[in-house]
Design a protein around this nucleic acid. Structure first.
Lengths: 148, 148
DNA sequence: GAAGATTGACGATTCAATCTTC
DNA sequence: GAAGATTGAATCGTCAATCTTC
């Protein structure tokens, strides 16, 4: 499994490019996260949006959601479409600004979010147990070093 | 920026969930990778496919590519569609098995792959310089521990 | 004119169904 | 029937218009 972009096939056992191993590990981890969430009928995107709404005191404007998810507004429009189709969220008008539309989490949405959070916590526990405390600290250090 | 799925808003400064910080860092890193590659008109998926083809001695069957990229066959079908539209790859028939279709990288494709690899190597160098040798070792250890 | 949301298009990925060839 | 590839539909993300409202 030599996936380096420069490998020619002959020179084996290279320096093990850390960049791609990190990307690869993250991808595998995300797959496990999605698998966990699919047990309760959620995707990562849906769970993330529900969590934002569950933690907010009041219904959030879609642009507010886009900011918190750090994604583009049109993405939220379509995500809320799907969440609404699932009955997990409701669109409500904002009386103070008729341009704005707010997303309100439904009781079913709250329930689903809790179920998802439980699965996610399980995975987080596994994660913490798989890595030594020392390495976790190094990992934290390395990741913050990357996020200039 | 408290993105934990369980945070209620009141209890601040939690244990800093490593799982999500890793996922977040990987996402940021991938964005930088895509940005680098877009300088030469490539996406990550296209570059990856071109690299596989560039390192192969002969044109590869699409199913072979799917295996090496560990993705589904239909994904490759469409990716090769786009690569072919860009003139970076050509579909060639397999004389020995008329079911099979092989992807051949074009001279332009080779050129583009080399340009992409150069940008990727730059990023890899940055990556290596940003993280201490010790932490790189810990990172490697942590990531292999995750990939059971 | 700028802000909020939507729409349409495209990239990347998956799945299920289909067609051709073995 | 099984293998190779394609097609159609779905999710998730981006960007470039567009429409309504401020």
């Amino acid at each position: 499994m030599n996936n380096s972009p420069t490998s020619k096939g002959g020179t084996a056992a290279p320096v093990e490019t850390s960049l791609f191993s990190l990307l690869h590990a993250a991808k595998a981890l995300e797959e496990r996260l999605e698998a966990k969430l699919s047990e309760v009928g959620l995707s990562g995107a849906k769970f993330s949006a529900l969590t934002v709404l569950a933690n907010a005191a009041d219904p959030l404007a879609l642009s507010e959601m886009a900011e918190r998810q750090s994604c583009v507004r049109s993405n939220i429009t379509q995500l809320v479409d799907r969440l609404e189709a699932d009955g997990l969220v409701r669109r409500v008008a904002d009386p103070t600004d008729r341009r704005s539309i707010r997303a309100a989490i439904t009781p079913l949405g709250r329930e689903r979010q809790r179920a998802g959070a439980k699965r996610v916590n399980e995975l987080q526990r596994e994660f913490a147990e798989a890595i030594s405390a020392q390495d976790q600290q190094a990992l934290r250090r390395a990741l913050t070093a990357l996020g200039d």
